[in-house]
Design a protein around this nucleic acid. Structure first.
Lengths: 150, 150
DNA sequence: TTAATTGCAAACGGTTTGCATGGGC
DNA sequence: GCCCATGCAAACCGTTTGCAATTAA
């Protein structure tokens, strides 16, 4: 394969490889945080000061559509974005969110057991409600140790 | 008990029983839909045409704080609100959302099994990540039968 | 009486759009 | 050269805030 998988996806979907797109994906690759569009925009300015916030939004939207990026809503009034590490393996994780400081922790513990049940549920719900289930989110909301202390 | 439970809660928390509050709770009581603030506002105008959107927001916020109402975010860029039917029993349900028409279905099927696992997970996560878990959301996203057809 | 509650208008913050310019292939 | 992609400014939309007037108890 000539290109990294994500570039390949772009080409296959008929989109161009442009600098802002490379910048955005590199930022997402090099973080384990859950960045907002603004976060990504600020980071991108350090690399290329002429990138616009609009382009960041459009790029994230595009990446989501071609299955490179997942958009999350943790109820903060703004979205957060995560790179899908391996789109083929469908690896994923669930989230714990601190309601006070908004810290977000990924967890993969017990995920096998969880996923087993979720797949089972998904199948049963599909049948009962005639839904074709595409994805799911599991969010635990609580207080992190720091915020409990204060 | 002199008052319905929700009025009791208001009084106990030091808040007043006002017309907009009665109107809002009645709307929530008489629906099984997941209404947005705007939806509730429009409905409330039919009953009392002088109620303001701001008041609806403030009322929903208050109700959420005293544990009468739960606020949900299905990633539409606006919140939706549900009356908590029985705050003592902690009855609850999970959601299936159609990504196309945004229809939201409550389900309680398999919930016992699900909740058992979730409680177990919750406990284990609390220990590992030192979080005091307060609540959780489980959302399945997919396509309803109607939207699959078109 | 009097502090809580309300409606209005204006502000706010994240996101989207229209449009003329610029850049990949 | 042909489009697609971009930046900018302005619009947009859900939500919040400041404030003076009103209202429940």
């Amino acid at each position: 394969m000539r290109y990294p998988w994500w570039q390949h996806r772009l080409y296959k979907a008929g989109y161009r490889l442009t600098n802002p797109r490379q910048v955005v994906i590199n930022i997402l690759k090099n973080t384990d945080k859950h960045l907002s569009a603004e976060d990504i925009y600020v980071d991108s300015l350090k690399i290329n000061s002429s990138i616009g916030l609009t382009t960041v939004y459009r790029t994230l939207d595009l990446f989501q559509q071609i299955g490179i990026v997942q958009k999350f809503d943790f109820g903060e009034g703004k979205a957060r974005y995560e790179l899908i590490k391996n789109p083929i393996k469908k690896e994923h994780h669930h989230h714990i969110i601190c309601v006070k400081c908004k810290e977000i922790v990924d967890y993969t513990d017990f995920l096998n057991e969880e996923l087993e049940l979720i797949n089972k549920t998904e199948k049963a719900l599909s049948e009962k409600y005639q839904f074709k289930i595409l994805h799911h989110t599991v969010h635990f909301y609580g207080m992190c140790s720091k915020c409990q202390a204060t």
